[in-house]
Nucleic acid binder design. Structure first.
Lengths: 224, 224
DNA sequence: ACAAAAGTGTTCTAAGTACACCCATGA
DNA sequence: TCATGGGTGTACTTAGAACACTTTTGT
């Protein structure tokens, strides 16, 4: 690699996180309003440019903290975005991260050094975002569907566990499908993703519901 | 993004392709021997630095062509590697691509501008590679297992189709498991990945075998 | 006792597992 | 006609889909 070849110059990496929550059956994504150019005044996903002294996932977490105040969020890489003009300043490659957060348990900063607003926005109410963030969001939504079927990604929404009926709402809102109560229960239970806690949760005038929680380690079953 | 912030300087992107083949039941990976520093004389996966005027996948394909002569290969992104000192020159992030090639149908250049040798190496005979390429290879092998179970990635090995017994060898060598002949057949057929071509292939002294081929479009079935 | 929502059960069908048997070929 | 390896079939078990019924609670 000839370091001085102009074809290698002026490149950088964006770390962009798509942070979802589920608010009363509505899937929402965390957006921030930019205070700087480019795209000043636009809403965008949470992220920024990677430092050259940090790993990608750490950069993503740093950006999340800087621009929203949120710490200790579990995120995972899901795609890469590299359209040549996706950023006007430098040639920037974006590494996309995805995470799920309980919106009740975090206090999102409305204003930071580089943002003037922040909000959880229902995914079908999202307008035109900065950069290629609409494309990143679409890709993240696909990945989210995959992850709730095959991982414990929703466990952050239910640190104390959940009842089957209440988590069914979450599945239905992400997957945009309705499921039979009884079959959903059976399927989720022998999916191997969750375990019974032997506790129950009482609702007024209703039969108490069993509380389940996600396993920490998910062993993914292979087709072959 | 303050473009002149030193934390953003000297970054680049590697596009690294892990190209597999299956040679008589042995899974092999295409390695090239470097003629330049860093890691001069080391074997490595196929790749190099991304240009700032090309998309990531196009850069990966350009590098494959430059360093092996292979064109028209199907590759897909599978992971990102970002250890801080993975490259000694600049801070380089690696985007990993994976592909499967029929080693009989390509003519791999033994020597190019930047390589002095190239070879298909059995995956359990691979030594210490340049950069973090051993780690990338491990990750690619995991992805390969996933892909042969859920996609038509092996179709490039069998452009004219394949018989069930011969492709079973391929599955067994990648997944490192043995399968019952009869059950493997049933499972692969109603996996939805392949279709019958109504042709047969004759072997000496044996019953002719039906030829199947992979579907072009795989509709992946969701758990929920 | 009643409504509301939780939990359990049944039947049918489709797919996975572990087997044994038959078929087409060339020597 | 025989060995070789390919193709088909059966019994058992397990999981998904479409259903109806019972249980616990507060009013």
């Amino acid at each position: 690699m000839e370091v001085n070849n102009p074809l290698y110059k002026n490149q950088g990496i964006h770390v962009i996180s798509t942070l979802f929550t589920i608010d009363n059956g509505v899937v929402k994504v965390l957006l921030i309003k930019r205070d700087n150019n480019p795209f000043k005044g636009y809403w965008s996903l949470v992220g920024g440019a990677l430092y050259n002294n940090e790993e990608v996932i750490d950069g993503a977490k740093r950006e999340i903290k800087e621009k929203t105040g949120i710490e200790n969020v579990d995120i995972q890489m899901f795609n890469v975005f590299s359209k040549i003009n996706r950023s006007p300043l430098l040639r920037m490659i974006a590494i996309g991260y995805i995470g799920v957060i309980d919106f009740n348990k975090v206090n999102v900063l409305k204003k930071t050094m580089k943002t003037v607003d922040a909000d959880w926005v229902a995914i079908d109410k999202v307008g035109t975002l900065a950069y290629d963030h609409n494309e990143i969001l679409e890709s993240a939504l696909e990945k989210l569907k995959d992850l709730i079927c095959n991982s414990n990604i929703l466990s952050s929404l239910y640190p104390k566990g959940f009842t089957i009926p209440e988590i069914q709402m979450a599945y239905e809102s992400v997957l945009k499908k309705k499921y039979d109560r009884r079959n959903f229960r059976k399927k989720l239970i022998n999916s191997g993703l969750i375990v019974d806690t032997n506790k129950t949760k009482k609702f007024e005038g209703k039969k108490p519901a069993k509380i389940y929680k996600f396993k920490n380690k998910i062993t993914n079953k292979n087709v072959f």
